[in-house]
């Protein structure tokens, strides 16, 4: 798996610089999800972001959960699917489904 951006190294660099960091990983996909399993996004407590777990549809929601995960220290497994095709709900417009694991970098 190679990607444009080495999200894990970026995350490790942020942590080394004293930031608190959470990592979100796509663990499973169904249908036409935009990013394959193994895609990652890193988020810092200060609000920095790198990488992506979808085509932009769920990054905001994942970043919010990342903040909770950093606060509690407990990982979370999130489910995203099609939601009534209403754009204001968090879901995938493409009709796919993804699971995203969010955990603190320790």
């Amino acid at each position: 798996m190679t990607d444009v951006e080495d999200v894990l190294s970026t995350a490790a660099g942020w942590q080394a610089a004293g930031e608190q960091v959470a990592i979100a990983t796509v663990t499973e996909t169904w249908g036409s999800s935009p990013r394959p399993a193994g895609s990652r996004m890193a988020v810092t407590k200060s609000g920095k972001m790198a990488g992506s777990v979808s085509g932009g549809c769920i990054e905001g929601a994942v970043a919010e959960v990342a903040q909770q995960v950093m606060a509690s220290g407990a990982p979370k497994l999130l489910d995203f699917g099609v939601t009534n095709e209403r754009a204001w709900e968090v879901g995938l417009a493409c009709g796919g489904k993804v699971k995203v694991f969010v955990e603190p970098l320790t």
């Binding site: 663990t27 399993a37 193994g38």
Partner: peptide, 19 residues
């Protein structure tokens, strides 16, 4: 890369082959 059930545990396994 994907998720596998091993016994009753769910594992994410990511293949990282050389480029």
């Amino acid at each position: 890369t994907g998720t596998h059930m091993l016994g009753n545990e769910s594992w994410f396994i990511e293949a990282r082959n050389p480029s």
